[in-house]
Amino acid sequence: STAGKIFRAMYDYMAADADEVSFKDGDAIINVQAIDEGWMYGTVQRTGRTGMLPANYVEAI
């Protein structure tokens, strides 16, 4: 389960779609929910934006 875990971005990511979020390497991602194998839903702490993000760009900390 991803509940209550904080994730950290390992790479920069530029949102490719309106429902995705952009983030930079080192950003903390909070309130994360796993959607499926490849995608998560969460909030980028630095920007306050919430949306979909690729699971392979982040790691649990």
Rank of each mutant, 00 (worst) to 15 (best):
Asn31Ala: 07
Pro54Val: 02
Leu53Gln: 02
Met10Arg: 13
Asn56Phe: 02
Ala34Glu: 15
Gly51Ala: 03
Asp25Trp: 10
Glu59Arg: 12
Ala60Lys: 10
Glu20Pro: 03
Gly51Arg: 01
Gly26Pro: 02
Ala28Leu: 15
Asp25Ile: 09
Ala15Cys: 06
Gly38Ser: 14
Met10Gly: 01
Met52Thr: 05
Asn56Lys: 12
Asn31Met: 08
Tyr41Asn: 10
Leu53Trp: 01
Met40Gly: 04
Met14Cys: 14
Thr50Trp: 06
Gly4Thr: 08
Asp25Met: 15
Glu20Tyr: 03
Asn31Phe: 07
Ile35Gln: 07
Asp36Arg: 14
Ser22Val: 02
Glu37Ser: 12
Gly48Tyr: 03
Val58Thr: 00
Tyr57Pro: 05
Ala34Met: 13
Gly38Met: 11
Asp17Tyr: 06
Asp17Asn: 12
Gln33Trp: 07
Trp39Glu: 08
Met14Thr: 15
Ile6Val: 14
Leu53Phe: 09
Gly51Ser: 00
Ala28Arg: 14
Glu59Met: 06
Lys5Glu: 13
Met40Arg: 02
Ile30Trp: 03
Glu37Cys: 09
Ala18Arg: 11
Lys5Asp: 09
Pro54Ala: 01
Glu59Cys: 07
Pro54Gln: 01
Ala28Lys: 14
Ala60Met: 12
Gly4Phe: 07
Gly51Ile: 00
Trp39Lys: 14
Ala9Pro: 03
Lys5Pro: 12
Asp17Leu: 00
Ala18Lys: 12
Lys5Thr: 15
Met14Ser: 14
Gly4Arg: 08
Thr47Val: 04
Ser22Trp: 01
Gly26Lys: 04
Phe7Cys: 05
Val44Arg: 01
Val32Lys: 05
Ala15Val: 02
Thr47Trp: 00
Asp19Phe: 06
Ile30Asp: 04
Pro54Ser: 04
Phe23Asn: 05
Arg46Lys: 08
Gly42Asp: 03
Ser22Gly: 06
Asp36Ser: 14
Ala3Pro: 09
Ala9Asp: 00
Lys24Tyr: 10
Trp39Cys: 08
Gln45Gly: 09
Ala60Thr: 12
Thr43Asn: 02
Gln33Ala: 11
Asp17Lys: 13
Glu37Trp: 06
Ala28Cys: 13
Arg49Phe: 14
Ala55Cys: 10
Gly42Leu: 00
Gly26Gln: 02
Glu37His: 14
Met52Val: 09
Tyr57Ile: 06
Ala18Thr: 15
Lys24Ile: 08
Arg46Met: 00
Ser22Ala: 05
Val21Met: 07
Tyr13Leu: 02
Asp36Asn: 12
Met10Thr: 12
Tyr11Cys: 12
Tyr11Gln: 14
Ala28Pro: 07
Gln45Met: 10
Thr50Gly: 06
Tyr41Val: 11
Tyr57Cys: 11
Thr43Ala: 00
Thr47Glu: 05
Gly26Phe: 02
Val44Ala: 04
Asn31Cys: 10
Thr50Met: 09
Ile6Tyr: 04
Ala16Arg: 15
Ala34Ser: 13
Tyr41Cys: 08
Asp27Met: 00
Gly4His: 07
Val21Gly: 04
Ser1Pro: 09
Val32Tyr: 02
Met14Ile: 10
Asn31Glu: 08
Met40Trp: 09
Ile35Gly: 08
Tyr57Lys: 09
Leu53Tyr: 05
Gly48Leu: 02
Gly51Gln: 01
Asn56Tyr: 01
Ser1Gly: 13
Thr50Ala: 11
Ala28Gln: 13
Ile35Trp: 09
Ile30Met: 08
Ile35Asp: 09
Ile30Gly: 06
Val21Ser: 03
Gly42Ile: 02
Arg49Pro: 02
Tyr57Glu: 07
Met14Asp: 13
Ala34Lys: 13
Glu20His: 13
Pro54Lys: 05
Met40Ser: 04
Trp39Leu: 08
Glu20Asn: 04
Val44Asp: 03
Glu37Lys: 09
Ile61Leu: 13
Ile29Val: 04
Ala16Thr: 13
Asp36Met: 06
Ala15Gln: 08
Ala28Val: 15
Phe7Pro: 01
Val21Phe: 15
Gly48Val: 02
Ile29Leu: 10
Ser1Met: 11
Ala60Leu: 12
Arg46Thr: 02
Gly26Trp: 01
Asp36Ala: 10
Phe23Asp: 03
Ala60Ser: 08
Met52Arg: 15
Arg46Ala: 04
Tyr11Arg: 15
Gly26Met: 02
Ile30Val: 11
Gly48Glu: 07
Ala16Leu: 13
Ile6Gly: 07
Phe7Tyr: 15
Thr43Leu: 04
Asp12Ala: 11
Gln45Val: 14
Gln45Trp: 08
Glu20Trp: 07
Tyr11Phe: 07
Asp27Gly: 03
Ile35Tyr: 05
Gly4Cys: 07
Tyr11Val: 10
Lys24Trp: 05
Gly26Thr: 04
Ala34Val: 12
Ile29Arg: 01
Ala15Lys: 00
Met14Glu: 15
Asp19Ala: 09
Asp36Lys: 14
Asp12Tyr: 00
Glu37Phe: 04
Val21Asn: 07
Glu20Thr: 05
Asn31Thr: 01
Ile30Ser: 07
Val58Cys: 09
Tyr13Phe: 00
Tyr41Leu: 13
Asp17Ser: 14
Gly48His: 10
Gly42Thr: 01
Lys5Gly: 13
Asp17Trp: 00
Gly4Ile: 08
Ala18Val: 13
Asp19Leu: 10
Asp12Pro: 08
Gly26Cys: 00
Glu20Gly: 08
Ser22Thr: 13
Thr47Ile: 01
Gln33Asp: 07
Ile29Gly: 05
Val21Ala: 05
Trp39Gln: 08
Phe7Glu: 04
Tyr57Gln: 07
Gly51Glu: 00
Gly26Ala: 05
Val44Thr: 00
Asp17Gln: 10
Ala3Glu: 14
Ala34Asp: 12
Met40Ala: 06
Asp12Glu: 07
Trp39Tyr: 06
Asp19Gln: 14
Pro54Asn: 12
Ala34Cys: 14
Val58Trp: 01
Ala18Pro: 09
Ala15Met: 02
Asp25Leu: 15
Thr47Arg: 00
Arg46Val: 06
Ala16Glu: 13
Val32Arg: 08
Ile35Glu: 06
Ala55His: 01
Gly51Cys: 02
Ser22Pro: 04
Gln33Val: 11
Gly48Gln: 10
Met52Leu: 15
Met14Phe: 15
Asp17Thr: 05
Asp27Val: 01
Asp17Val: 04
Glu59Lys: 13
Trp39Ser: 09
Ser1Tyr: 15
Asn56Ser: 12
Asp27Lys: 06
Gln33Ile: 15
Gly38Ala: 14
Asp36Cys: 12
Gly4Asp: 08
Ala3Met: 12
Glu59Asn: 07
Ile29Thr: 03
Glu59Leu: 03
Val58Glu: 05
Glu37Arg: 11
Tyr57Trp: 07
Met52Asn: 03
Tyr57Gly: 05
Val44Ser: 04
Met14Val: 15
Ala18Glu: 14
Ser22Lys: 05
Thr50Gln: 10
Ile6Cys: 13
Asp17Met: 01
Ala3Val: 11
Met10Phe: 00
Gln33Leu: 09
Asp17His: 06
Thr50Pro: 09
Ile29Gln: 00
Tyr13Ile: 00
Lys24Gln: 13
Pro54Phe: 00
Val32Phe: 12
Asp25Val: 14
Phe7Asp: 07
Ala34Gly: 11
Asn31Tyr: 02
Phe23Gly: 03
Ala34Pro: 12
Phe7Val: 06
Tyr11Trp: 10
Ala55Val: 08
Ala9Ile: 02
Met40Phe: 11
Thr43Ile: 02
Pro54Arg: 10
Ala34Arg: 15
Gly38Thr: 11
Tyr13Met: 01
Arg46Glu: 05
Thr50Val: 11
Ile6Ser: 08
Phe23Tyr: 01
Gly51Pro: 04
Gln45Phe: 05
Met10Leu: 13
Val44Gly: 06
